[in-house]
Each structure stands twice: as C-alpha cells, then as structure tokens.
Design a binder for these strands. Structure first.
Lengths: 349, 349
DNA sequence: TAAATTTGCGTTATCGATTACATAAGCATA
DNA sequence: TATGCTTATGTAATCGATAACGCAAATTTA
C-alpha cells in the first residue's frame, strides 16, 4: 500500500524544505518562479493531495458544516439539503448530515458530535419543543454561525430562514372560502411547533376575516401520516355539524383524509374540498390532484446557505438575519368545485 | 468569545501535563484513580470537548465517510442515505454528502474532495458510463474501503450492494404475462447503465421463457420523467401492432405513460396493464395504484454501511463482497385485470 | 534493609500543514 | 570594496491530541 504523499516528500525529492513547498503551492510571493514551477511539477508527478485535516487543525477552519434534520428521507428535507449542498459545495464546504428522528436527545447528541468535529457552522431544523436552549448555547458562545430553517426558535443572535406559514395557511383557507365552503375544518400536527401553530393561526384569521366562526371541534390534531388523516375524518364525520372542507397542515394527512372520504362515498371536490400543505410531489401526480402550499425547500436551503456564508465571511460583526420566504398556493382539483373549475387561479405546477 | 478548551487548559488548571490528562480521559491504565477523577471533573467543569480534527490527524482516521449519489432529493437515494446514516452514526462515523448530478466530472471532483478530507471510506452509486476507472484507482491504491450501491461496476477489490434488477424485471414481466397480456412493451432509460441493462434482460428472458417474442420496436428509451412516459406511449401507439402492456424501468415513466394512455381513452388495467420500477411512494398513493418493484433502499444503505464497517475493521485482509438483495414485486391495480382482481398475489405495501 | 519490580507522571516526537522570524545570497549603490 | 537592501530559503513554533520512552517514587520481594 502506497504511503501518503505530503509536502515533506516533495521537499525531500527536491532537496528543499517543506516551508518552501508550502509557499510554492499557495502562491506565496516569497518564492522564486523556478522553485515554484519545480514544486508544482513534482507535486502533480507524485500525485500530491493536501491533507485538509492538517489544514483545518492549523487554521481552526474545517470547511465542514453540519446540517441537522428530523429525517433525511423526506422530500422536503432532502430538497432543503440539496439546496444547501448546491450552494456550499462550490465554496469549498462539505455538508455533514445528522438526523434527530424528532428526538430531543438526538438533537443534543448531534450538536455535540458536530462541535467536536469542529464544523464551521450548523444549519438546523430546530425541534425545539422545549424552551430549554442550553445545548444551543454551546454553539452561540463559540460564536459559530447557527441558522435555523423551516422550524425555528426566537433566540437572540440566531438567524433563520422560514416560510410564512401563516400566509400560506391564510391563502389556502381563503381559497376554500371562495369556493363556497361553509364549514372548514383544520387538520393539524403538533401545535407546540411554531410552523403548525402559525398554520393554525393563518387558518383562524382567514375564517374570522370572512365572517366565519372558529369551531373548536373542527380542529383535529394527529400525526403526519395517512392514518392520521383517516382517523381525523372519522372524528369529523361523527360531529353534529359535518364540515364540507378541510385545510390540512400536512399533505399526507390530506391524502389519508381524501381516501377515507371516498371510502365513505363522499364526492371530492363536489361535496367536500381538501387542501394540503407542502406540495409533496404526489399531490400533483394523483388523478385527483390535491391543492397544496409550496414551501420552496430548494430555495430555503439555498437561502440558509447564503446566510451562513454571509456570517462566516463577516465573523467580526454579529448579524442576525431572519429571512421569511413567501409560500405559494397551488390550486388543484381537490379544492375546485365544478362550477368554478374554469377559475383563473387554477395552477398546475 | 470564549477560547476553546483543550487538554492543555485542564493540565494547567491541575498543574499536571497534557499527557496525564489524555491518559485520564482515555481510560489508560497508566494513571492513578485520584488523578483520573480530578481530570474528569475538571473536564466537565470547563466543558471540555475533544477536537476530532487533532485526533484524526494523529490517528490517520477521520471517522468520516463520503457518500456520493447522483442527487440527494430523490426518494430512493435519500432513503439509501438514511440507511447508511442509521447504521454508521451509532458507530461514531459522520456522513459527508456529495452529489454528481449524473456528471462524470463532478464524480471526479467529489472523489478528490473526499480524499483530501481524509474520509475513511467512500460509498457511492457509480455513474460509470465510461470504462475509465482512473479516479477510482486513487481510492483503491490507498486501500480505502470503496463500496458501490445500486449502480456498480465490476472492479477487482471493490465491494457492492445492489438489488437483483434482472429478477425484479423478470417477475414484473411474468406477472404481466400471467394477467394475459400478449404484447408487452418495455420503457427503459440509459441502457449503458448496468441497472437498466439488467432490467431489460430480465424482461427479455421472461418473454422468451413464456414463448413470446422480443420485438425491437417495443423497446423505447427515454429520460426518467413523466414527459418520457408520455412520448414513449405516443411512439408505441403509432405502431402497427399496438402493445397491451408495458413494463417500465422507472415509476415516473410509468406514471407519464398512464396519464397519456388515459388521455387517449385507453382503460387501465382493462385494456392495458402498466408496471413500474422502484416502488416510489406515489405508486401506492394513487387512486389507481401502480404495480412496482421495491428496491429496499433503506436496507441497501444499511447493508452498504455494514460492508464498509467490515472492511475498516479488517484492514489487513482484503475482502471483496458483492451483496445482491432481492427485490419485491408489489402487484397493484394498474396490472391486475378485473377478471383476476381477487388474485392472491395482490399486495399493498 | 537492599534489590527488584511496579506505578504514576513528565518529556518529547509525531500527524501535515502554515508562518513569523532568522539568515544567507545576490544585487545595487556609495 | 564596503554597505545597504531585496529576495529566496531555512528554522522552528504552532494547531490538539496521542504514545513511546525515561525516570523517580512507591511497593513488593528476598
């Protein structure tokens, strides 16, 4: 097995010192053109590759960033990561992936592991169910760039890139109202998370702004799964006043709901309208395409990366940036009543 | 900004040397219980965190692995990565993500970047359109574990974890034959990639084994997109002999095909059966669920990680392992003719 | 009690690169 | 020719951890 080539090997070959080799390879002016040429030739002849670990140790800059997400195998998060990678790789950064599986303990573990690995910054979707930010303080105290995306907490000095969940939910609900739906239910997930709280509030505000009432029993919380949608519909259908539309904070719940509604013989969109959230690819693949709110995960990732770059490149000045992206409602068949089917708003991404 | 705590800070605090601190923290027996306790207390008091970079430089082991995929935001690849991460994180490894965007140049760039970063191994889905493996030789020469997953090339000393694409395609085609389909077309992607070549051959073999002929004009190559499915169907419908089923090597192409068939007024599955490949989540979400072949990406990732672990833990012995996972056909409505709809084989994952 | 052994800790080199400082050689100027 | 100024190169410290080696003190054995 061939040994690793270091600048010392190049130095020995040319009977000079490692310092000169280093200078030659880094376009340092304090070296003669002749030596530089010789070193560069020898380097490529020996197939020299700089050891980034040594460089990182010396400079205190690893050129790695950590990205923490609940799970990587979801369309939303993998698209955010793609956006981050697309933006950071050309700048010489590598992305280290960590998953929390929605577990607070894993979040702490991951942060510690990333800090030990000397990452130059952490981009994370913050689970932040608790208000205990101790593990984040280690990052902040070290003056390491920390950027939240999608799920954030309001912490001084911490930047964030999110979408306006409130507006997304408001627009989605408004569209249902405009379709003539009178009793609009809301299927939500864990409202201790800001994103779901905001979607709930957007829904509420849209109803109130249009002279409609918010009914407590129309708000059903479940997991973000098809099963969650099924059981939620079952609960709604047991009410005295049955709703005629739902705005779901999750596309998966929306799909589960649609399936259950169909199973009960309820016609969509004629008798019942459904709108989801996230614009998961499948919402547009269905024979009955589902109206949904796009969160632009790719752009979110890119923006988070840009905010990170701004911060590492201006270490001295402390900048907190809170970018809020605008979501976009894609109105599709699941919430377009036949009488309105020629609506200009219909939009198939 | 607080300075980083190193073992030297602990040493100074206790008026001992860094070597003793190191021994105390690493359960080295050559240290007294009293000193060990003192060091451990001081370490946690000062919130000491080991610098993995220094450790990596010293030991020559970074505890990072590189994973190279065409793109991360696809259900298949993000699931493989999840499998890898699930398996490697508990073993103290971090996963560095790289994308090739299906570009050979990016593959070389990524490999060089990972080698510079001193990763302990590389797991990759090999684009390998060309037969030029020069950039891989750098990895192999360094005796670094290299594991292919999904897309491989047969290179001595390189392990791989793949699924049996041939069998998957064979089973899928056989099921169509058993449904009574007489003219089965095949929609494929780039057959210079082994996976697509194998699927094509499985299709071919199934036809021949059942006394059917392989028709050259029934094989249509396109991109793995909905659009690809649409244009492929258009070509097939222009033939003198129109097929009555397709086996598609891609779920996206299958979906595009289904849409176009419906647009032409062709009834699925009554007049035409369709089967895809990959078992993308949406295939089972549709109102007309699509028959597809599951590739078990999570298991593939876990297995690739396990093969990697075996190799790093047995550096001295050179082991080449070629794991072939069995795919599973999920028979759904798109390929189940009404007369056979009670078939025992129907399976909804 | 002296010799032999064990134990605990300090000294120092090392991993691979960068860089401040020192120094020698080359050249121009007086 | 002596002096000053560049320029190119060498020397050595540094980043943070580990580990071989050496040595003194403590302990065991004869």
């Amino acid at each position: 097995m061939p040994k690793k080539i270091t600048i010392y090997d190049i130095a020995k070959e040319l009977k000079i010192t490692a310092a000169s080799v280093s200078r030659a390879l880094n376009n340092n002016p304090k070296i003669s053109a002749k030596t530089r040429k010789l070193v560069q030739e020898t380097a490529s002849k020996l197939n020299y590759k700089p050891n980034r670990l040594a460089l990182a140790l010396k400079s205190g800059k690893s050129n790695n960033v950590g990205v923490i997400v609940p799970k990587i195998n979801s369309n939303f998060f993998s698209s955010v990561i793609r956006g981050i990678e697309d933006e950071l790789f050309p700048q010489g950064y590598h992305v280290i992936i960590c998953q929390t599986y929605e577990l607070g303990t894993r979040e702490i573990e991951n942060i510690n592991a990333l800090l030990n690995a000397q990452v130059d910054g952490i981009l994370m979707s913050y689970s932040g169910a608790t208000s205990n930010h101790d593990h984040l303080n280690f990052i902040i105290e070290k003056n390491l760039p920390l950027i939240f995306f999608d799920r954030k907490a309001d912490i001084e000095g911490v930047s964030s890139v999110t979408i306006n969940d409130f507006v997304g939910a408001y627009e989605a609900t408004k569209q249902l109202i405009q379709q003539g739906c009178k009793h609009i239910a809301h299927l939500t997930i864990d409202r201790s998370l800001e994103i779901y709280k905001d979607r709930f509030e957007g829904y509420q505000k849209a109803l109130l702004d249009h002279g409609m009432q918010v009914q407590e029993d129309f708000i059903i919380e479940s997991e973000s799964t098809l099963e969650g949608g099924k059981t939620s519909i079952q609960k709604l259908l047991e009410l005295k006043q049955i709703p005629d539309a739902i705005f779901s904070a999750s596309d998966f719940v929306a799909l589960g709901a649609i399936r259950e509604l169909k199973a009960k013989g309820i016609k969509i969109p004629d008798e019942f309208c459904v709108t989801g959230f996230s614009n998961e690819p499948f919402t547009n693949f269905m024979e009955l395409p589902i109206t949904s709110v796009d969160q632009f995960p790719l752009e979110m990732g890119k923006m988070a990366a840009k905010v990170f770059l701004e911060q590492v490149n201006n270490k001295e000045t402390k900048i907190e940036k809170n970018v809020v992206l605008n979501p976009k409602l894609y109105v599709r068949k699941s919430s377009t009543k036949p009488s309105n089917s020629k609506s200009k708003k219909t939009n198939n991404k």
